[in-house]
């Protein structure tokens, strides 16, 4: 069994120090977090690290990763993250992202498809739904959003550790900064880029789209829009699951992704 415990490394990109957790063995897999920032090293990452070398960066402005002053838009974030791959020494890697991180992975793949081995999009933002709406998490506030994010929090063993423990003052400050960063990148238009669905048809890498059937933050309709836009993409919709399949249906999720990345 490979050692799946992570090590933290600091990678400098454009003068900014970026925190990256790295663990496991195998082909490289880079995981991009959502608007809440890094959840640390979770069970699903340990599961994937048995098969891949997992890199989990904290994006600029999140979790004490620095943000260069010029970096202000989602397009900037995408270009910066491609540079991050280069600084990590990854000529080609699989990308996995959830929520905002899924949007980021899709943008990176559309910008520079040759560096993406395989693409995994989990309940990803980025495409404007045609029927429903992407829930305005800033308007609903943090507590309500967390409740909406889960179909059944009790089926997510890490839920209480992640969301119910008392935060230290430093962690509270980090949470505020993470929210600010999410607002900076995603405020308007809210959580999508009009051009993205028009650029995705150029993708040729194998793509897996995973979605919680009961996602109340990003409607499952967006999963179908991703599937339609990306040639050959496979869609897996998990029943009785909310916005975080990797937390709520961890074993099933690990199995799906490991099979796909084999």
């Amino acid at each position: 069994m490979p050692n799946t415990d992570p090590q933290e490394q600091i990678v400098n990109v454009s003068g900014a120090d970026i925190r990256v957790l790295k663990g496991g063995e195998g082909k490289p897999l880079v995981i991009f977090h959502g608007v809440e920032g890094s959840f640390g090293w979770c069970a699903y990452q340990r599961g994937l690290a048995q098969q891949c070398t997992v890199y989990a960066p904290s994006l600029p402005g999140f979790d004490q990763s620095q943000r260069p002053e010029w970096l202000e838009s989602f397009a900037d974030l995408s270009r910066f993250s491609l540079w991050l791959l280069q600084q990590l020494g990854l000529e080609k890697a699989s990308l996995l992202g959830y929520g905002m991180g899924g949007w980021l992975a899709a943008e990176m793949a559309a910008m520079c498809p040759q560096v993406v081995d395989r693409l995994v999009l989990i309940d990803a933002a980025g495409i404007q739904p045609q029927q429903a709406e992407i829930t305005d998490i800033f308007l609903h506030g943090l507590d309500a959003t967390r409740q909406m994010a889960f179909f059944d929090a009790q089926q997510a063993p890490e839920h209480d550790t992640l969301f119910k423990r008392k935060l230290s003052p430093e962690e509270r400050e980090t949470r505020v900064q993470n929210q600010e960063s999410a607002v900076r990148y995603c405020w308007r238009p809210y959580m999508y880029e009009r051009s993205l669905p028009h650029l995705l048809p150029r993708l040729r890498m194998p793509t897996l789209v995973v979605w919680g059937q009961e996602d109340r933050l990003i409607p499952v309709e967006c999963a179908e829009l991703y599937r339609q836009a990306i040639p050959g993409a496979r869609l897996e919709v998990l029943p009785q699951c909310g916005h975080y399949p990797h937390l709520e249906k961890t074993e099933q999720f690990i199995g799906l992704v490991r099979d796909f990345l084999k």
Binding site: F138, G141, V176, Q179, E180, A182, V183, R184
Partner: peptide, 10 residues
């Protein structure tokens, strides 16, 4: 009022 209405993040 909800605090984040008067002072949204940032």
């Amino acid at each position: 009022l909800p605090g984040d209405f008067m002072a949204p993040p940032g």
